[in-house]
Design a binder for these strands. Structure first.
Length: 743
DNA sequence: CGCGAGGATATTTTT
DNA sequence: TATCCTCGCG
């Protein structure tokens, strides 16, 4: 097996060191997935470990899927018994089997963010909380953080003693959990929390899984929160073969509860831990990597490491500043179109990364005009769209009508003339008799307060009952189609005829194909496709998961979603103070928040393999207001000599600042005063930077080879360079595009 | 009860 | 800007 010879010595060590705790500090692009897959193969092939005893945990389904594929390729026989899964699906699998031991039903439903919000609104209304004073969101985030830290409602209440706001939160938290249990539902955080609780409460179950998972590997370890750490630690405490892989410089999920001390203090937790550093980067050019290093070196309190690469130097980082976001989108669209036309890259090689989802819009609009195929990742999750959620709630209701939330959502969709008053009356009846909302609906005729409305409820109940009896033999996709037929959901949309309605119908079609795909998957695995199975699969998918390799479109996504991915040609857009780093972190008291933004920037830069373009706009519309922003501080942190063009902060930026300082400041805090004179911005593209070659110089072009520069003129945006190529004759080109190198 | 108008509000990131 | 919520009318 010379398989392992292709690994570098550090990687080999990580692969061969199989026993006991191991911490692998894997820099960006250092081949950590490769290490993990080889390690799995090594365990099985060389150490004779039964694949059944190996577990690999990741954060996204996509990462899990990739790892699964690569392990299957390497290992062959028996690879399917390796447990490769995300934290959340792992917990769901465990809880589906054993959560009854905690007093839940094994066919619990999973609440997403929207469901949580609905539930919270309900609770606030019932507890008569002024949501102007205390927002639903703040409760939810307090609860989420508590769960991340494994703090129960009781403990929370104990800690809150004295503080009024916290006492309120404790009260809400308690009520929230009560409601979840009543609806037989778990939220995302509960999945982890309850699994840990289960292990603590039931030694028998714990032992079963400890025996099963004798070798545990955790990917993206820097993103684990306290609950996840506890989970992994508990599982590993018997055999102690815990291998975690992470990079503290890529920790970007603190807001979601990630505890960076999980990685920083790993060695304290496991004093006998073997620490291995992977510092060779195989992904990026020297220039890109050095730019990334330049930025991240401004952070304090990181694990010492020096990422390096043997790759070639590559092009400089292309920095461009524009007047507006439109110009920025324009430039990037043109640049991509040009690179594709020249055969340099395919659309699929290009990615645009930005800080906030809202920034995608300008690019989308521009791409539609230019006919550039693209795909936006993130934003509104497919399964969170209204029509999809409606249908899923129907399925949930058919599957398990214990979830009041789902029932209430769809009872009047499409319109059945059932309004708030009726709902309230049914709810009261349900509460009084301690039955679920749906069961109360079934008894509508007995609810005296309802009067004539009871008649409207009956068809709904009949519909659900009929579908429920059909579900077992119809299968998920057929059930969906019948449901659409019966409810007239699609017909109603089609009647609208609006563009938006059309998109919704398309989404519904996509949902049906996903159901079909699910059934096919079950068939190939030899498992029984069930409604619950489908709902579960659907509950845990993120949008990144849908990225297919091999399809040819430009990918647009947030920097957060981009982690773990790589692209030959990357654009980092909106590098402006106030956008990235975000305004919130600039004004925050806590200096570590800026550091997290910086890590995010590091992640962004290191996504690029060959080409990196960084752009910023001087003014930008942010939710209807014009903001004037400086070039991001992160751009200044990139060593000057690595930038193809210096950020011309001196002349133009100062000029603009001088003239508009008052306005700019105003704009930052309130509305722009429209009465004031509009600022004229001068395009600075032609200013103040010299090309590394002159007329008469010999230059080299990526595609056209060597030639002589015969003319340089200042064009609208950039220098226009005329070159007489030895093999291709005379060509005129823009300097930024041409990437000519002096020879 | 349903619908539309108008106002308030938010945007940082997500499994 | 885009969405969400409330309110008032038919």
């Amino acid at each position: 097996m010379s398989n392992y010879d292709t690994l570098n010595p550090m990687q080999q060590e990580a692969v061969f060191h199989t026993e006991g705790p191991v911490l692998i500090l894997a820099g960006a692009g250092s081949g950590k997935t490769r290490v993990l897959t080889h390690r799995t193969a090594y365990l099985i092939e060389e150490k004779g470990v039964n694949p059944y005893h190996i577990m690999a945990i990741t954060f996204t389904n996509k990462a899990a899927g990739e790892m699964r594929e690569r392990i299957d390729d390497m290992v062959g026989f028996g690879s399917e018994s390796v447990w490769v899964s995300t934290f959340h699906s792992t917990c769901v699998r465990i809880l589906r089997r054993y959560i009854d031991r905690l007093g839940y039903d094994n066919n619990f439903t999973i609440y997403d963010g929207d469901d949580q919000k609905t539930l919270m609104k309900d609770i606030c209304r019932r507890l008569q909380i002024d949501t102007k004073l205390y927002r639903e969101k703040s409760f939810l985030s307090a609860i989420s953080h508590a769960k991340d830290e494994l703090i129960s409602p009781e403990e929370f209440a104990l800690n809150a003693a004295g503080d009024y706001a916290q006492k309120k939160q404790a009260q809400v938290y308690t009520e929230y959990q009560k409601m979840l249990r009543k609806n037989n539902a778990l939220d995302f955080d509960d999945l982890i929390f309850k699994t840990v609780e289960l292990f603590r409460a039931d030694p028998e179950v714990l032992d079963y899984y400890q025996e099963r998972f004798r070798y545990i590997m955790v990917d993206e370890y820097q993103d684990t929160n306290t609950a996840q750490f506890q989970l992994v630690k508990t599982l590993a405490s018997k055999y102690r073969n815990l291998c975690v892989v992470g990079d503290d410089d890529q920790s970007i999920y603190k807001f979601r509860g990630a505890n960076i001390y999980n990685i920083l203090n790993f060695e304290q937790e496991f004093p006998d831990a073997r620490v291995i550093k992977l510092e060779q980067n195989y992904r990026s050019t020297k220039n890109i990597l050095n730019a990334a290093n330049g930025v991240i070196s401004n952070n304090v309190g990181r694990k010492a490491k020096a990422l390096w690469t043997d790759n070639e130097e590559g092009d400089k980082v292309n920095f461009q500043q524009f007047d507006t976001g439109y110009d920025e989108a324009d430039y990037i669209a043109n640049d991509i179109a040009k690179k594709v036309r020249d055969g340099e890259y395919n659309y699929g090689d290009c990615a645009i990364l930005y800080r906030t989802n809202a920034q995608s819009r300008l690019f989308e609009e521009r791409f539609v005009v230019s006919n550039i195929p693209y795909k936006v990742v993130g934003g509104v999750n497919f399964y969170a769209r209204r029509e999809i959620k409606d249908l899923l709630c129907y399925l949930k209701t058919i599957d398990n009508a214990r979830d009041d939330l789902a029932v209430r959502r769809i009872i009047n969709v499409p319109k059945r003339g059932i309004g708030a008053t009726t709902l309230a009356r049914v709810q009261t009846y349900a509460n009084e008799n301690e039955i679920s909302f749906y069961n109360a609906l079934k008894m509508a005729e007995d609810i005296s307060t309802l009067g004539r409305s009871a008649v409207k409820i009956k068809p709904f109940v009949t519909l659900i009952q009929t579908m429920r009896s059909k579900a077992p033999y119809l299968g998920v996709s057929a059930l969906l189609e019948e449901l659409l037929e019966e409810t007239g959901y699609v017909k109603e949309l089609e009647a609208e005829g609006e563009e938006e309605a059309k998109a919704r119908v398309e989404n519904i079609d996509e949902l049906i194909s996903k159901a079909v795909a699910y059934e096919e998957k079950c068939q190939s695995e030899g498992t029984e496709p069930t409604l619950s199975g489908f709902l579960e699969e659907v509950a845990l998918v993120a949008d990144v998961d849908s990225l297919e390799s091999g399809s040819d479109y430009v990918v647009l996504m947030t920097l957060h979603s981009a982690k773990g991915l790589e692209f030959p040609n990357v654009y980092l857009a909106g590098l402006e103070d106030g956008v990235f780093p975000s305004y919130m972190t600039i004004v925050a008291d806590d200096p570590t928040e800026i550091e997290e933004e910086r890590r995010l920037c590091y992640v962004g830069i290191t996504r690029a393999m060959e080409r990196l373009t960084i752009t910023s706009a001087r003014m930008r519309m942010v939710r209807g207001e014009t903001q004037y922003n400086r070039v991001s501080r992160f751009v200044q942190e990139i060593p000057q000599e690595l930038l193809g063009r210096a950020p011309e902060k001196v002349r133009l930026a100062e000029a603009v600042k001088a003239r508009t300082f008052e306005q700019a400041r105003e704009a930052f805090h309130s509305k722009v005063s429209y009465a004031s004179t509009p600022v004229e911005f001068v395009s600075a593209a032609t200013e103040n930077h010299s090309l590394p070659y002159q007329v008469g110089d010999r230059v080299r072009h990526l595609k056209f080879g060597d030639g002589t520069v015969t003319n340089i003129t200042a064009g609208g945006r950039d220098f226009e360079v005329t070159v007489d190529f030895d093999a291709f004759g005379t060509k005129k080109m823009f300097a930024i595009f041409a990437k000519l190198k002096k020879i």
